[in-house]
């Protein structure tokens, strides 16, 4: 090809890529780098001159009991959360995978919460679960003891986990439903002829074929829950006593409320690395499984 033609080609490509890439670099990549840079100093968000402190902030995070606690809490939400949302989502998908208006109605009702803002959801459930909330109004009305769902160090995390699952399971159910409907029907027919019962059909046909849907669902929920902020922030502000404080909440609190932006930056870096590494490992493993199962 003549040289001028190639140059022109590259120019058009650059033009197509530039707007998106430029904004992305400016608003996302550069800030991450700034964040990493600041983690090595001791900026408090106000002062104009910083002093270099090397790895101090990063070391401090490791021995910080509050960080360990936030990590534990976040993992409590993420691991059971991912499992439960996927199990329940799959279960619901199977149940509504039949024709008819009733299934459509069920489908719509599960999906509904997904569209509502997490802030609104948080307040709605707060109105229901708080000590003077609707549910306790009922309990007291039936002469039972009121339960402090959100004020108990033991119950509050479960309440937050529950609300998150309530919000997200509908979406995952639909993902699995789409996956279910993509499975060729004749596979089931031949299995039935061979005498396989429902459970065996599920194990041999359904589950393997759902591998792509599973990969997507697990990654989506995992990355979302590791970054959980809105619902615990609105419902309990991370309390009581930090029992529902996630990494995201601690990071903002440290950076903004405690005048320690540099320490907050180091926490953010930990979050990024943690989520990144686990995501990559998880995706790799799930994709490999996908390939194996589809063949």
């Amino acid at each position: 090809m003549p040289k001028s033609r190639i140059n022109q080609s590259s120019l058009w490509r650059v033009l197509l890529v530039l707007p998106g890439l430029a904004i992305y670099l400016a608003m996302i990549i550069v800030p991450i780098l700034m964040c990493l840079y600041l983690g090595f100093f001791d900026w408090n968000g106000i002062r104009e001159n910083l002093s270099f402190v090397g790895l101090d902030n990063f070391w401090r995070a490791i021995i910080d009991r509050e960080f360990q606690n936030s990590l534990k809490t976040t993992l409590f939400f993420t691991i059971p959360g991912t499992l439960l949302v996927n199990l329940l989502g799959l279960f619901l998908a199977i149940l509504i995978n039949r024709p008819g208006w009733l299934s459509k109605f069920y489908r719509s009702s599960f999906f509904f919460p997904v569209l509502i803002s997490t802030v609104a959801i948080g307040f709605i459930w707060k109105a229901l679960l708080s000590y003077n909330g609707m549910i306790n109004v009922f309990l007291v009305g039936w002469n039972l003891e009121a339960i402090d769902f959100l004020g108990s160090v033991v119950l509050a995390p479960w309440a937050i986990l529950f609300v998150n699952i309530w919000h997200d399971v509908g979406f995952i159910a639909l993902l699995y439903l789409a996956g279910l409907q993509a499975i060729p029907k004749d596979l089931y027919d031949s299995a039935a002829i061979d005498g396989a019962n429902s459970w065996q059909q599920f194990r041999a046909i359904t589950f393997p074929w759902l591998a792509p849907a599973l990969t997507s669902s697990v990654i989506i929920i995992f990355t979302a829950y590791m970054r959980m902020y809105d619902i615990p922030f609105v419902m309990t502000s991370g309390g009581p006593g930090g029992a529902t404080q996630t990494l995201a909440i601690q990071t903002i609190r440290v950076a903004f409320n405690q005048n320690q932006f540099s320490y907050g930056a180091s926490l953010a870096m930990y979050m990024l690395v943690l989520i990144g590494v686990i995501s990559i490992v998880l995706t790799h493993y799930l994709r490999k499984r996908e390939d194996q199962l589809i063949n």
Binding site: S130, Y131, N132, F149, G151, G239, P240
Partner: peptide, 11 residues
């Protein structure tokens, strides 16, 4: 008061 922890200032 019972449920103190989950009561807000305004309430």
């Amino acid at each position: 008061n019972k449920g103190a922890v989950s009561t807000g200032y305004a309430d």
